[in-house]
Simulated scan of single mutants.
Amino acid sequence: MVLFVLYVKADLENIEKIEAPPLHRWCLDLKEPTGDERRQGVWVSEEEELEVSGSRGTAHFLMKWPGAKKESQLTVVRDIKKLTRAIGAEDSGKFVPFVGFDCRGLEPYGWSPEDGYKVTAAGETSVFEDVNLSEDWADYDEEGDQSVGVYGVEYKFGITKVK
């Protein structure tokens, strides 16, 4: 299986980890691999299980490009052993393989980090739910008596083969 892996980098201030909770909604920009068609701001959710036409399989997102004979599909793949993981305190300023997308007939080229992320303060003293990472985010951890923040979020996509 060929996966498109979303790598995320951010500068962290007193942050233990950043995660996308189960059933997270991903906002992606998609393109047709063999043409010029593009779709921006497409929401993909692990909560949706769609039947793939002519197959026994399912996907989290289906679409048909103009003139295409078959549906294109995307499936969110989490917890790929020894690859994808949450962003940890030691990852500040480094790209981390955050999540994978199994794609057929489409390719992700953009990601909007919007809201829905879970941020845990250093020392695991506080957990901040539904954090929007589209801009720099800062708050105060009263339990840990420390300021916390996620700054300069950047991303890139990489391709990897998984058995």
Rank of each mutant, 00 (worst) to 15 (best):
Y151D: 02
D102S: 12
V8Y: 00
L3A: 07
Y140C: 09
D130Q: 13
D29M: 07
G93N: 12
V2I: 14
G67P: 04
Q40E: 15
G67L: 09
A10F: 03
L133S: 06
K31H: 08
G152Q: 11
D136A: 14
K9R: 15
L50F: 01
V2T: 13
M63Y: 00
R104V: 13
R104M: 11
E124C: 14
S112Q: 04
E48H: 09
P97V: 06
P21D: 15
E13M: 13
N132G: 05
R39H: 10
Q146C: 08
Y7T: 00
Y155V: 01
Y109Q: 04
D130W: 10
D36P: 03
P66N: 08
A122G: 11
S45I: 11
V5Y: 04
R104G: 06
F61I: 08
E107F: 01
V99K: 01
A89M: 14
E46S: 13
G35H: 07
F95G: 01
E37C: 09
D91F: 09
F4D: 00
P108G: 04
K156W: 04
E49N: 09
V77D: 01
A121C: 12
F4T: 05
F98K: 02
F95L: 06
L106Y: 00
G35V: 10
V52P: 02
E16M: 10
E37F: 12
E37Y: 12
L106F: 05
E16V: 04
D36L: 14
Q40V: 15
P97H: 05
Y117C: 04
V2K: 12
K82E: 13
G110M: 03
S53Y: 10
G105D: 04
A122H: 10
R56D: 15
L133C: 09
P113H: 05
W137P: 01
F128D: 04
V96N: 00
Y155T: 01
L12Y: 02
W43R: 08
V76C: 05
K9G: 02
G41S: 14
D79S: 14
I80C: 06
D130H: 13
P22D: 15
V150P: 03
G116V: 04
V42R: 10
K70C: 08
T120A: 08
D36C: 10
G88N: 13
E48I: 07
R78I: 11
V148D: 02
E114S: 13
V127E: 05
R38V: 15
L6T: 00
K94N: 15
G54F: 09
E46Q: 14
G149A: 15
K161G: 05
T120V: 15
I18Y: 04
P108C: 05
L83G: 00
V96Y: 01
L50N: 02
F95V: 04
M1C: 08
E107D: 04
R78P: 07
G88S: 14
F157C: 05
N132M: 00
C27K: 11
R104P: 02
A10V: 06
G149K: 06
V8F: 03
E19M: 15
M1Q: 11
V42M: 12
A121R: 05
K156M: 08
P113W: 02
S53H: 10
N132L: 03
E143A: 15
T75E: 06
L50Y: 00
S55H: 10
W26M: 07
M63G: 02
E47H: 10
F98M: 07
E142V: 13
G144M: 09
G123P: 07
